Simulated scan of single mutants.
Amino acid sequence: MSNKVFETLEKWGVKNYKVIDKQAIKEITLGASILATGGGGDPEIGLLWAYKVLDEGKTIVMVDPMDIPDDILVASPACLGAPVVLTEKPPSADVLNNAIRKLEQYWGKKLQATIPIECGGVNSTVAYAAAGEFEVPVIDVDGMNRAFPELQMTSWVTNGVNASPTVSCDDRGNVTVIDTGDDNKMAENIARRVAMAYGGISWIATYPMTGKQVKEASILNSQSIAWELGKAVYRAREKHLDPVEEMLKSLKATRNVTGVRVFKGKIVDISREFGGEATKGFSLGRIKMEGLDDYKGSVAEIDFQNEWLVLRIDGRIRCLPPDLIAIVDSETGEPIRTDIMKYGYRGSIILIPAHERMRTPKGIELFGPRYFGYDIDYVPVEELNKEVWQDGV
């Protein structure tokens, strides 16, 4: 077992850290997949990648962002493209490693830690796997505390940190360097077209920044939030508790936010924009759910673009981006993703307020409802659901 990562922590004067074992990565992956709002890609791919790294005797260590030096250099390894394609076309570990090495080469600097770009099924976990591969720590942050479809939709951009340079690779050895300065929408446009040229999916190393920028612009301790959420679901399964209730209790304990269950039903209709993966680089469409139990007679409709975006129940808007919509299996707490959902799937719809760093005026401009083409002003999810929010039911 290498001690390089521990040597680094000693040099930084970091005494508090968490060694991530297989159980921990499994819990973090589940929690992140729930926060991923239906997107973030197949969690199994990132999970197996992290397991492989641990099986090779490498160490994965997570550190608190406030403990890292201001002058270290970090970046985010991630997957970009349509989740449906990822499920059909999983990569080898070499692709992401190549992206990081090419970013180091272009940057002229060595990566000293990784940061997950989001709480996503695959995009949280690959940052842990890459940290283990490169023998650097992973920092307890991300850029969203959820998943979003586009590269620039982060708290980093809203706080003046840019996605450039971004290196994009595929499994055939193709490499594209994207450097658009502070034009982050252009970086997204190019990265999306590159992913489409690669066949719908790409592996990127992006958002190079300093330790100081990590602290000022990230969603702090977001990985711990995901970890506790995953633990809560596994605990519910073991003790035969209601996984939804345990999730909501966990969010209250870790983030001090109230989340609510607003619907329980089954999917009765799926409208997909077929070809969206190839023409736009996204999975797009809408689902319709019919209510069950206490919600019998009601109908829920959710629009999606990789992630669940807008929820209407009986025609009334109940959630808008950047607030979170999660559909989970009512019995197991397993998230229902946009890339695997099918007719007849049953689940509970949970709504969670976005992190305060995502709700700034700049954030609403970059990833609020109007950005996605809705002629609607953003209204916080708590206000849209006043009648149930106080009770947290």
Rank of each mutant, 00 (worst) to 15 (best):
N145T: 00
T59I: 10
N123D: 11
P69N: 04
R101M: 13
N97D: 08
M62C: 08
V136K: 03
A32E: 04
V53S: 01
E56G: 01
W12Q: 01
G143I: 06
V85Y: 07
K109Y: 05
A99E: 04
L47H: 12
I25F: 06
I100S: 02
A113F: 01
A75G: 07
G41R: 05
I45F: 10
A75P: 00
K89F: 15
E88K: 15
K26C: 10
S76P: 01
R101G: 02
V63G: 01
K26G: 08
W49V: 00
M62I: 03
A147G: 11
G108A: 12
A147S: 14
G41K: 05
G40A: 11
D140I: 03
G81M: 09
A131H: 03
P149E: 12
L30S: 05
M144Q: 04
G40S: 09
A36Q: 00
Q112R: 11
W49N: 09
A50N: 08
S33G: 10
I34P: 00
Y51P: 00
L80M: 15
A75D: 02
C79H: 03
S124H: 12
Y17W: 08
V63E: 01
T29L: 11
N98S: 11
A129C: 08
K110N: 04
S92Q: 13
Q23N: 15
I72N: 02
G38S: 07
G39A: 07
L54E: 12
V126M: 06
K52D: 15
L54N: 02
N98R: 13
K18C: 08
V74T: 12
T59E: 14
M62F: 05
A50G: 15
I68L: 03
N123I: 05
F148E: 13
L30E: 10
N97R: 14
W107N: 07
A129Y: 02
Q112A: 10
G39W: 12
K110P: 08
L30K: 02
I45L: 13
M62L: 09
K15Y: 11
V84D: 15
N145M: 10
K110Y: 10
E118H: 09
L73R: 10
I34C: 04
P69M: 12
V14P: 04
I139E: 02
